[in-house]
Design a binder for these strands. Sequence first.
RNA 1: GGCCCGUUGGUCAAGCGGCUAAGACGACGCCCUUUCACGGCGUAAUCAUGGGUUCGAUUCCCGUACGGGUCACCA
Length: 545
Amino acid sequence: MDYTALANLLFPDITKTIADYEAQYPPRDLPGGAVVTRIAPSPTGFVHLGNLYNAIGERLAHQSGGVFYLRIEDTDQKREVEGAVEAVIDAMTFYGVRFDEGVTKDGETGAYGPYRQRQRRELYQTVAKSLVLRGLAYPCFCTEDDLNAMHAAQEAAKENYGYYGKYAVWRDRTVEEIQAELQKGTEWVLRFHSEGDPEHMIPVLDGIRGELKVQENYTDFVLLKSDGIPTYHFAHVCDDHFMRTTHVIRDESWLATLPIHVQLFDTLGWRRPVYCHTATLMKMDGSSKRKLSKRKDPELALSYYREAGYPQEATWLYLLTVLNSNFEEWHLANPDADSREFRFSLEKMSTSGSLFDLEKLDNIAKEYLSRQTADFVYDGLLDWAKEYDAGLAARMAQRPDFFKAAIGVGRGGEKPRKDYGCWRDAAAFLSFYDAETFTFTDACPERADGAQRAEILTRYLDTLRFADTQEEWFAKVKQITEELGYAAQPKKYKKNPELYKGSIVDVTNLLRVALTGRQNAPDIWEISHVLGEEETRRRLTAYMA
RNA sequence: GGCCCGUUGGUCAAGCGGCUAAGACGACGCCCUUUCACGGCGUAAUCAUGGGUUCGAUUCCCGUACGGGUCACCA
């Protein structure tokens, strides 16, 4: 077989060699132990949790003096969505992920580009040609129908699926046969000529999982598609070699095709990167677990968290606790430290698929927000509202001091309130302060309702002196409570309910509902002082009816 | 079906041959408290299973079960 003739037949325009590219993309000059890694999303328009999950590579890279870059895997034109690249960049920017090189909004930066795979066509073809030259790749003219028929036959015969052995019908054809087919204009793909033996197990060291044993690949997988564009497998190997990637962080679903990648690196004589296969995020579906799905699970989309308004840092805090088992402990010990100061380690990453826990996210976010200043919360809420709640944004901008005061209630001090973990919840929680968004969600407490209601409110309004301190104010509330036949101490009422109409709880909750529309609200005195005397009296008076 | 990965309480998990098997979320209970919260204390709840190896296995090895993933000219 004359491989040179075949190679020239297949790639007449390719004149470069691998050596040219080795020279063009020299090894990076970085300190020892520096990690070079990347995220390499395909531009489908859907930015998901996994993209952010794998963006922890940034921490690894930057904590080691390495490089983190963005590569776009746009080899599948059919699935490409317009604006998808911008969406990825926006999302990453939003979460504070910083790229050293790669695709940007208006082009790209870095010496190892282009960083969009479709623009690297010549490089892939050069490598492909070198493989043909060595007799390790050949064209296959099978149609989709041929392959389907093959698959069906294998299924019927209970044989392994795939293009190998006797099913590899184009594997050992003569140059003449191939040339004849080429002249007919038949479409072809370039397949890898695998010498692999499935009995051979190859050790691979995974950065997260440790020693792995994978079966040697024995199928003649596709290197180049009929449009001359590489498959993921081929592009990944070429790119990560020439971009001098040291660590490939990706989802564990790639474990299945690891043999292909390893085989390619080895036959090309290239040094394999450290593969780091992360565990899949799972979700409970009925009584069984399953992979988080793009179609069914809105929480897989990164936009879900942005729309709900989880602060970026809170989202990271959650992700980090899921990703690195010793993060939570570290965070507890250093509650005020920025999560970026945490030394991230691959060994501490979990290897089993974990259930995504929105409750825990909420808890972490609440804890985080409770520690922030009113100004910080005001700014965050305003930014969010500008995008998702224009009305609120306008009202906030109009009365910043009022909103800051409202946000400040129960904030600061040793035991701050934890009323909300995301901006959407914050907006809902704070809605009662603003007369425009005030609504009743809870009913008047039973034991203070009916005739009691007007009586208590009248009495309260009569004695209300707005200048009173909180202590003075509360002393009066207690006094009214007792005068009207309620127990000033809930315990007393609990002991002898027949002696009282109710307890102070009923009285204060009546005030609370009148003032806020709900029983779950912060301190009444503080709220009143945010609302002002006029509005306080107005609401209380209105509630008498 | 082949192949691969995984399996400690409801959830996330620590553990890396010898422990009464951490911690967090959630649940429940108690306490604090003028309410709503916050907080404090406490309770229940876990090593899938069978064989080895070993003086000794949650930890190492093999099998089984279960769960997940993957078998495209998609990534």
